[in-house]
């Protein structure tokens, strides 16, 4: 029993050291899964400029992130892939100040590298012969994909509804799915593992990414610095590198 207690105290001590050694203030950013790569670079660049701040990014489906925020998670900044999820957070009184659209994305068809199954276009999403994946309904990439398909008059027959766009991409990259609808930026980011097929502009959607500082956060000042960095010329040029269009 005594030995167990000593071990427990030692572990506690280690944990305390682990958190105590960093004297930078944390800024907790909840960002849509499709922002993963771009925000990794933004985080590095921002921290070079702000040595006193430590950006911690929590990635996930925008609606899962919304649930965490509505449940009171101490998030400083929310960057959503969908104005609707952001509006819900705003309506519940969790947003300080204004929503700003900081990036624009569109959708594209993703296939495993080299398109082994020979997918041609949106019509194939109704074909049972293909293994088709979409993001789940309620997740922005899933709702956008369904809007695109509806615009093209296609009634999809998905074999899986993935919880977020990264999970969908993983299965396409592995060649386990023949095709799926993802963000245009995802194809730019994974050009070595997936191939893209453009969606005609008449069917495509314009996906706006809003960002906001949150009331439940613990570092308002750091949060505002981070948001203005994302909106700055440097932030915008990083986003452009990853295939996002300017708002």
């Amino acid at each position: 029993m005594r030995r167990l207690l000593i071990v427990a105290l030692a572990v506690l001590g280690l944990v305390a050291c682990g958190t105590g050694s960093s004297n930078r203030d944390q800024v907790l950013v909840s960002a849509a899964a499709s922002l993963t790569d771009a925000f990794a670079v933004i985080e590095t660049e921002f921290e070079l400029d702000h040595l006193d701040l430590d950006i911690v990014i929590n990635h996930g489906g925008s609606s899962a992130l919304r649930e965490q925020i509505l449940a009171g998670a101490p998030v400083d900044v929310f960057a959503s892939a969908n104005p609707v999820t952001m509006t819900q957070v705003l309506d519940e009184g969790f947003v300080v100040g204004d929503l700003v659209v900081f990036a624009v994305n569109s959708m594209a068809i993703a296939v495993p590298f080299g398109n082994p199954a020979g997918v041609i276009g949106l019509d194939d999403f109704a074909d049972d012969a293909f293994l088709v994946g979409l993001c789940a309904q309620g997740v922005p990439c899933g709702d956008f994909a369904r809007s695109v398909l509806a615009n093209a008059g296609v009634d999809p027959a998905p074999d899986t509804n993935e919880p977020d766009v990264r999970a969908l991409l993983t299965k396409i990259e592995a060649g386990e799915l023949d095709t799926g609808i993802v963000y245009a930026t995802d194809i730019a980011a994974r050009a070595d593992a997936v191939s893209g097929i453009d969606i005609a502009a008449e069917f495509n959607v314009r996906a706006e990414y809003p960002i906001a500082v949150l009331a439940e956060g613990e570092n308002r000042e750091g949060a505002e610095e981070f948001v203005s960095f994302v909106l700055s010329t440097r932030g915008q040029s990083i986003l452009a590198e990853f295939g996002f269009a300017k708002p």
Binding site: G133, P158, D159, T160, N161, E162, A167, T170, K171
Partner: peptide, 10 residues
Amino acid sequence: ITFAGNLQGR
């Protein structure tokens, strides 16, 4: 969800 995916009824 990682191996089998997510489809209602299947």
